[in-house]
């Protein structure tokens, strides 16, 4: 009998420590990845002059390592994606949470989840075959392999994130808010626009940030449709030109680069920049959530 209890205790300890180890492992992995990125990327600053890194020419086989065109490329593609995804994403969330009858909601919600699960290479493939020729003809562009094409595909990746998180935020707005607005004679749209959306503002903001975070790090679809020309985009009209993103650069060049070469280190430096930018986006998103929670606690107390 005592033996049985002892065995049970040992089993318990082992399981608890296993759970604890897997919990800590996530932190350890992130730290190890960051350490590896730093150790491979930071030597760039010793080997490649800063003036080369901030130039506007990226042509690594002749030692031109200007990072600005790549950073600009990533920013403009993400900017375009945000332009498309934010209105569509929020309006879809409003429709699902506030307007749609529950039967439609039951169909729409899983469909959005399916969209979130689409492999991005599949989106890229559809992009090349359908969107690229279509955009070239409709917008009368020299080529359809432009930033905007990438933006539209990325919007497809960001929308499910924005919709499902915004929808949760809208759903958690207390029923009494809407009832009060409607009782004061507000129309359904006025209630949504003036009451429900502002009340869910922080959750919607988080949704937008997380959606943007996803687009910034996306690689495959972007590499297939943006043309990958390392041109420095200086204004929003570059949405209609080919651009090269940081993610596509790493994906295209890492496979052939000699380990330990300048080019190899520069690619890791790009990795660090990507890591930091996504980290900042995620921190902003969670800071918003944190603020919202504190506000709710204040109201409740």
């Amino acid at each position: 009998m005592t033996r049985f209890i002892k065995d049970k205790k040992i089993g318990e300890t082992i399981i608890i420590s296993l759970v604890r180890v897997s919990g800590y492992s996530a932190i350890v992995f992130v730290l190890m990845i960051f350490y590896f990125l730093l150790s491979e990327g930071l030597p760039t600053f010793v080997k490649v002059p800063i003036s080369s890194l901030i130039s506007s020419i990226w042509y690594p086989i002749e030692a031109y390592y200007g990072l600005l065109p790549l950073l600009g490329g990533s920013i403009i593609v993400t900017f375009g994606a945000a332009l498309v995804a934010i209105p569509i994403g929020i309006l879809t969330a409003v429709y699902i949470a506030e307007v749609a009858p529950s039967s439609t909601r039951e169909i729409l919600k899983p469909l959005i989840e399916v969209l979130a699960g689409l492999p991005s290479v599949l989106l890229g493939f559809l992009g090349i075959l359908i969107l690229v020729p279509y955009l070239r003809q409709v917008l009368n562009l020299p080529t359809g392999l432009v930033a905007l094409t990438g933006s539209i595909l990325l919007a497809g990746i960001a929308i499910p994130t924005i919709v499902s998180i915004s929808e949760d935020a809208l759903y958690s707005v207390p029923r009494s808010y809407r009832d009060a607005a409607l009782a004061l004679g507000a129309t359904e749209w006025q209630t949504i626009w003036k009451v429900t959306l502002p009340a869910a503002r922080n959750g919607v903001l988080t949704a937008v940030m997380l959606g943007i975070g996803r687009t910034f790090g996306e690689t495959m679809a972007v590499m297939m449709v943006t043309g990958n020309a390392p041109v420095l985009p200086t204004n929003p009209t570059y949405l209609f030109s080919p651009v090269r993103t940081m993610t596509a650069t790493i994906a295209a060049e890492m496979g052939e680069v000699a380990r330990g070469s300048d080019h190899y280190n520069v690619l890791f430096l790009i990795g660090i920049i990507l890591f930091l930018i996504t980290l900042i986006i995620n921190i902003i998103a969670s800071a918003v959530v944190f603020r919202q929670r504190k506000r709710q606690e204040r109201i409740l107390s």
Binding site: I57, E62, I128, G227, P230, P242
Partner: peptide
């Protein structure tokens, strides 16, 4: 050098398409 707006495509299929 290649003109900077030269499109760099990751595969032969990309070019042919």
């Amino acid at each position: 050098l290649f003109s900077r707006d030269t499109l760099l495509l990751p595969s032969s299929e990309g070019i042919t398409t």
